[in-house]
Design a binder for these strands. Structure first.
Length: 469
RNA sequence: GGCUGGAUGGCAGAAUGGCUAUGCAGCGGAUUGCAAAUCCGUGGACCUCGGUUCGACUCCGGGUCCAGCCUCCA
């Protein structure tokens, strides 16, 4: 049975959906004013495999995955002004870029991808409800604030109480607020800013309310899982709870899942620190699957240290797995439409690992065990080897790994200044004839030439094969 | 200051009250013209101090150090 570490309770709990065999999950997505970095890649990949696994358990059609897009906020406005660019063209540009990055990483699209600007009605209705209930007020600067003191359990997610928060607060307090912790629901538009009509004047939504409104709109007032990066736990998710439960008077979300940070030199990768690596830049040097493996080789809650060294290791590990699938996986691709997992020790251990709060490092270790088994069988029992290869691919597929053709992954793509596949094959052919003549020095010379181009040769009984380092 | 979480072998990274994680790198052997790949084998760890226990890396308590949150951030 699947267990999930629930941020709300701080405990690992058995996962029981609200509606039998139906799962609803909302994940906070991107604010689209810049390219996605590796931290974003982690959220994308982590919740991708969570969704894949939930679909495996509950059936593909019984999981609804919603990931929103924040397409209106202060930073977007600031960036648009900076670029001298229309807001809509800016956000659309980065939405497209995000989709490209996610697709490259093998992240499947969510079922619903709501945008804040397309849900103004729901946002306004929610603020109105909070006003009617006396949980929100319009301050004399025109902004509408949520009155945190009206929500008794505020701080339940972040495990904080109001006194601690106030005493430690370093933020400059907006004078108009009744209480420093109150947060904005509706922000008055300044001259020239994009705005929407509201009962309180022209303005735009605060950051937190959009997620309450969109999740409720897409999944209802009470749903199963809400996820996002750890940095959203407070205040964003805390505020979502306050807004949603303040409105409905009942439970909002049962399970909160937060993935850990990506670090650089033991420091959190973040936009404000400027120490972030853009996905598309990393993709210049590493195959997307290498990034995916790198992310999944740690538990989603652990800190993940970004470095070339660690990406190189991820690549080496992945190479080992693909090496096992060489010359065997071509015949398998058709059958992956309806994966067969085989009921044996391997799949049991794999599923046990995944059931234990999505323990992907342990699940991956099973893939290596399978690859060793496969290598042994390849020479002794071709039929059984095929079954194991099939299983390896089927299980890996749940992690979005080993979905490429082995030879294609290992040979990679020719770099602009590197040798083409044809040139490589020509040299290998020359070497083959030298080999027939037992001209070993010529053989070694050609191999060295290729090695200098980062092409690695492997002589096998079936002939010479090659891969790019 | 308050609150979270963490400290595992050369590196990355899991589990577990007594039994091999796994990967990368290393070493020995098989294989190979030599390599590579693969297979077989192998060395190497549990921050510190106490406590509980027949037995603790694993549970409890103190300490040290690290990261994060309390402010926009996935």
């Amino acid at each position: 049975m699947l267990h999930i570490q629930n941020t709300l309770s701080g405990k690992k709990e058995p996962f029981i959906p609200i509606h039998k065999n139906k799962v609803s999950m909302y994940v906070c997505g991107m604010t689209v004013y810049d390219y996605c970095h590796i931290g974003h890649a982690r959220v994308l990949v982590v919740f991708d495999i969570i969704t894949r696994y939930l679909r495996k358990i509950y059936g593909a059609d019984n999981v609804t995955y919603v990931r929103n897009i924040t397409d209106i906020d202060d930073k977007i406005i600031a960036r648009a002004i900076e670029n001298g660019e229309d807001i809509n063209s800016l956000t659309q540009r980065f939405i497209d870029a995000m989709h490209e990055d996610a697709d490259a990483l093998g992240v499947k699209r969510p079922d619903i991808e709501p945008r804040a600007t397309e849900h103004m009605d729901e946002i306004l209705a929610m603020i109105q409800t909070l006003m009617d209930k006396g949980m929100a007020y319009q301050a004399n600067n025109g902004d509408v604030y949520y009155q945190v003191s009206q929500f008794a359990t505020y701080g339940q997610l972040a495990k904080k109480n109001l006194d601690e928060l106030q005493s430690g607060s370093r933020v400059e307090v907006e004078q108009a607020k009744r209480d420093p912790m109150d947060f904005v629901l509706w922000k008055m538009a300044k001259e020239g800013e994009p705005s929407w009509d509201s009962p309180w004047g022209k303005g735009r939504p605060g950051w937190h309310i959009e997620c309450s409104a969109m999740s409720t709109q897409c999944l209802g007032e009470h749903f199963d899982i809400h996820g996002g990066g750890l940095d959203l736990k407070f205040p964003h998710h805390e505020n979502e709870i306050a807004q949603s439960e303040g409105c409905t008077g009942h439970k909002f979300v049962n399970y909160w899942i937060h993935n850990g940070f990506v670090r650089v030199d033991d420091e959190k990768m973040s936009k404000s620190l400027g120490n972030f690596f853009i996905i598309r830049e990393v993709l210049q040097s590493y195959a997307p699957e290498v990034i995916r493996y790198f992310i999944l080789n740690s538990h989603y809650m652990s800190p993940l240290n970004y470095s070339d060294e660690n990406l190189d290791k991820a690549k080496a590990s992945l190479t080992t797995l693909y090496q096992a699938l060489l010359n065997i996986d071509d015949a398998l691709n058709d059958s992956l439409e309806t994966p067969v997992y085989e009921d044996n020790d391997y799949s049991q251990r794999f599923f046990q690992a995944m059931d234990d709060d999505f323990n992907t490092p342990m699940a991956i270790s099973v893939l290596f065990d399978l690859s060793h088994e496969l290598n042994r069988l390849k020479n002794t029992d071709k039929k059984q080897a095929k079954i194991i290869a099939q299983q390896l691919k089927a299980l890996a597929q749940l992690l979005g790994l080993l979905e490429n053709n082995a030879q294609q992954f290992l040979q990679g793509n020719a770099s602009a200044d590197g040798l083409s596949d044809d040139e490589i094959n020509t040299l290998i052919a020359q070497r083959a004839s030298a080999k027939q003549d037992k001209n070993w020095s010529e053989c070694d010379r050609i191999r060295d030439v290729l090695d200098a181009e980062d092409i690695l040769l492997e002589d096998t009984p079936e002939g010479t094969r090659w891969r790019r380092k």
